[in-house]
Design a protein around this nucleic acid. Structure first.
Length: 511
RNA sequence: GAGGCUGUAGCUCAGUCGGUAGAGCAACGGACUUUUAAUCCGUAGGUCUUGGGUUCGAGUCCCAACAGCCUCACCA
């Protein structure tokens, strides 16, 4: 055991606050009592939820006749727990401590006479936020609270900084994001939401695996950032001395795998888009893309419903749920409507009447000069239709010219076989019948629609992708799901930053 | 990228009309062997985000910077 775990004495004392000074004093006392303030392996403890589940094993011995005894004696199971000190209520020669692990919270009873002098001295060194281990007997207090009556205490790790206010936790959104480790421990519901996120993702994998899909991993560094209209992050490989881009989509490599004979593939992974941050956008986010050979966008619609219903069930929720105070019903089949139908319904304009559409676009302040009619229509759609959709609703059959990776309808080449799933104006999923004609794909890669900014265009020629299509990609359905947004819906989160553990923030100023 | 709002003790928040900086929790000392946000008595804790300006005097008014949030833009 080292002499001291503290800052060596020859170093000038740091400028520390009173909380840290008090905690370092106690740390020193813990060392003097012969304990390691940073703890060691601690075997044999049970999750607190499992300890709570043993309440039924407590037996109460009736008071013997003629006894002076006031309260009946109890015998409970011997348990060992470990957790973080959340609350302490010292009352003279006994202390009530609430400790928390990731399964729950339980009260510890530490009585001076019950644990003996050595344990008592150690208990007096506990601070809120410390990690401790406890051996004891599970019983109830006279107020009925399930409690571990400590027989032996173990010190597992000192906390040098004070936790936030015990009733309110952290509420400053900046602190919550920068110090997610504190947020997870001390803010009500945060840990539970991220556990739900994991359950949702696990459920999505299970649904896909059960339907015979193969999970794969494509490259995240691309020399051509294709598959979506978005600005990429640029980086550089030193040894090869080449520019590279962080991927903006999973699509083009998964389709190469369709050519390679992987008939059902998916990837669940991070993509990066060098764009603005908002309550619905983080520069890196998690995307699911699924491709199914010999399917089409109709097969993807059924799959989307199965994925979402599975995720709702995996989190133990009803298909009727509340999001930001609004009721949503995810009972399949979800509503559906074609792009043109919904356009006509929400705008009272015939979507085929280009002049009328242009007039409305100008009314909402969009500059239509030299812009492709379908881009104008899409602008009006986003403004007037998307926000009006409560959903969940599948919007189907988009103008072909704004869908350069999508197969056209057999009876109408101006319409693409595509759907997007909207919920309360938020786009959650996007699916296509995939274009597999290499000549048409090459032509569409060359097409830069009038009025579209180059950055926003999908017109990026990927010769290797065309070469892959030339070898024959089966007709297929493809689906993309924004996982963070789905998690927002299923955990009633108003901001994407509430479902991403470490969202992007500007660097903190040096202290 | 543009506009609006916010920034006070470790945390959560008050701070009136411009006139000596406040509370609760946390901390420290004391009392207390069945508490439940324990209670009671006492003590300490502040570059009011930063930098300018106006003023006899600025947490408060003005300007700028930094950070966060919201709306818009970009986008999913």
């Amino acid at each position: 055991m080292p002499e001291s775990f503290d800052t060596p004495a020859d170093q000038p004392p740091r400028d520390m606050g009173m909380h840290e000074a008090a905690r370092r004093d106690k740390l020193q006392r813990i060392v003097e009592l012969g304990h390691d303030p940073w703890g060691n392996r601690f075997d044999g403890h049970m999750p607190i939820s499992a300890v709570r589940a043993r309440e039924a094993e407590i037996v109460t011995v009736p008071i013997p006749e003629g006894s002076e005894q006031r309260s009946p004696e109890q015998h409970g199971p011997t348990v060992r727990v470990a957790g973080r000190v959340m609350l302490m209520r010292p009352t003279g020669k006994l202390i009530f401590i609430n400790i928390q692990d990731w399964t729950g919270e339980i009260q510890i009873f530490v009585g001076k006479n019950q644990v003996g002098e050595e344990n008592w001295d150690l208990a007096k060194c506990f601070d809120l936020g410390d990690l401790i281990g406890v051996d004891g007997e599970l019983k109830r207090t006279k107020t009925g609270e399930l409690t571990v009556f400590a027989t032996r205490l173990h010190f597992l790790t000192k906390s040098l900084d004070a936790p936030p206010e015990k009733h309110h936790g952290l509420s400053d959104p900046e602190l919550r994001q920068r110090m997610r480790y504190v947020d997870l421990v001390h803010t009500e519901g945060v840990a539970a939401r991220f556990i739900k996120r994991t359950q949702i993702i696990r459920s999505i994998r299970r649904t896909l695996d059960d339907q015979g899909f193969l999970e794969v991993e494509g490259p995240t560094l691309h020399s051509i950032a294709g598959g979506a209209a978005a600005r990429p992050f640029k980086t550089h490989h030193n040894a090869l001395d080449i520019p590279l881009f962080m991927r903006i989509a999973l699509e083009l490599h998964l389709k190469r795998l369709l050519v390679g004979g992987f008939e059902r593939v998916y990837e669940l992974g991070r993509v990066y888009r060098n764009e603005g941050i908002s309550p619905r956008h983080n520069p890196e986010f998690t995307m699911l893309e699924v491709y199914q050979a010999y399917g089409d966008y109709g097969s993807m619609m059924e799959l989307t419903e199965a994925l979402i219903v599975g995720a709702i069930e995996a989190t133990g929720q009803s298909k009727q749920l509340m999001w930001n105070g609004q009721a949503l019903d995810f009972t399949p089949p979800f509503q559906r409507g074609t792009y043109d139908e919904l356009f006509a319904k929400c705008t009272n304009i015939d979507p085929a009447d280009q002049a009328a559409v242009r007039r409305m676009a100008e009314e909402i302040g969009f500059n239509t000069q030299g812009v492709h009619p379908d881009v104008i229509k899409s602008e009006v759609f986003e403004e007037k239709v998307e926000d009006a959709l409560s959903g969940p609703i599948f919007v189907t059959d988009y103008p072909a010219s704004i869908c350069p990776l999508t197969k056209r309808k057999r009876d109408n080449p101006a319409v693409a076989e595509r759907f997007e799933l909207f919920v309360l104006g938020m786009e959650v999923a996007n699916a296509y019948t995939e274009l597999n004609d290499p000549d048409l794909q090459a032509a569409l890669f060359r097409t830069q629609l009038d009025g579209q900014k180059e950055d926003d265009s999908m017109a990026k020629m990927d010769h290797d992708f065309i070469r892959a299509l030339r070898h024959g990609m089966p007709p297929a359905g493809g689906l993309g799901v924004g996982i963070d947004r789905l998690v927002m819906l299923l955990t009633d989160a108003a901001s994407i930053r509430d479902v991403i553990l470490f969202p992007l923030l500007r660097p903190e100023a040096e202290p």
